[in-house]
């Protein structure tokens, strides 16, 4: 089973990297770009075959390591 975990900064948490990217995009002539927020993607391969169990495991991985829940949200998608 394969899964994709997406980690994003929570609303209200300043993202200076996203801001820099936003400015670079407008510098390249991409008009009409609003806010840009940078995040992370993890593609994870699992030997688990039970979807519900895999989802629970992936969430535990996010809580314990992959996301810092003080500043980040995460979402899990089994592909």
């Amino acid at each position: 089973m394969k899964a994709r975990i997406t980690v994003t900064l929570k609303n209200g948490v300043l993202d200076p990297q996203g801001k820099a990217i936003e400015h670079a995009l407008s510098g390249l002539g991409f008009d009409g770009v609003g806010q840009v927020r940078q995040g992370k993607v993890f593609d994870v391969e699992l030997s688990e075959t039970d979807k519900a169990k895999a989802e629970a495991d992936l969430k535990a991985m996010c809580d314990k390591l992959l996301a810092n829940t003080v500043i980040e949200n995460y979402s899990v998608a089994i592909t």
């Binding site: 948490v13 300043l14 200076p16 990297q17 820099a20 810092n68 003080v70 500043i71």
Partner: peptide, 11 residues
């Protein structure tokens, strides 16, 4: 300790 340490605002 509480909180988080993020990228410097100046990058």
């Amino acid at each position: 300790l509480p909180g988080a340490l993020m990228r410097n605002s100046s990058l």
